[in-house]
């Protein structure tokens, strides 16, 4: 527990204006950062002394009522230190652009494509931002809250 506070507080100390919030709800260490600081903070977290060498997961949560609609959520894992951390940032609907992490982690390429496909969040610097699960010609982003659950877009004419 002593050490856990260290990561959060040292991040706060290192990036004073960029770390907006830090806490551990339900025991998951979480920091909320400014979007512009993402590449610097992620690059630092990947190195010693933090050693979060694995990008576990990347996803987006859609809050249509908030001014900054899309919350991008990263989960990192440090195998040598056996700990996880969650990094969150919010971007508005008018400019849903986040810096790409493809330079740091290789699986970021697919993860960012998924986030783009499902939510329409764009990743600046991504080499190949294309739909991954849905097909070309599909309109809209299905996991957004305003996309209807049963709004189907068939690829071929269906019988009946």
């Amino acid at each position: 527990m002593e050490e856990e506070k260290d990561v959060l507080s040292s991040l706060r100390a290192a990036y004073p204006g960029d770390v907006l919030e830090a806490g551990a709800p339900f025991g998951d260490e979480t920091i909320v950062i400014r979007p512009a600081a993402l590449p610097a903070i992620m690059a630092a977290l990947r190195q010693s002394p933090y050693e979060f060498t694995m990008l576990l997961d990347l996803t987006v949560v859609d809050y249509p009522d908030r001014p900054e609609r899309f919350e991008v959520v990263y989960h990192l894992l440090s195998i040598p230190r056996n700990r996880r951390i969650r990094i969150k940032l919010s971007v508005p609907e008018s400019a849903p652009v986040v810096a790409s992490l493809t330079g740091l982690w290789k699986n970021a390429e697919w993860l960012e494509r998924e986030a783009f496909d499902m939510f329409g969040v764009r990743f600046e610097g991504h080499p190949y931002l294309r739909r991954i699960f849905m097909y070309d010609g599909f309109e809209g982003h299905p996991l957004r809250k305003d996309y209807g659950l049963r709004h189907r877009q068939p690829r071929i004419p269906l019988r009946k």
């Binding site: 849905m134 299905p142 659950l149």
Partner: peptide
């Protein structure tokens, strides 16, 4: 990929 995307998360 995506040929078995069944909309688990949305559902």
């Amino acid at each position: 990929v995506g040929y078995l995307h069944r909309g688990f998360e949305k559902t």
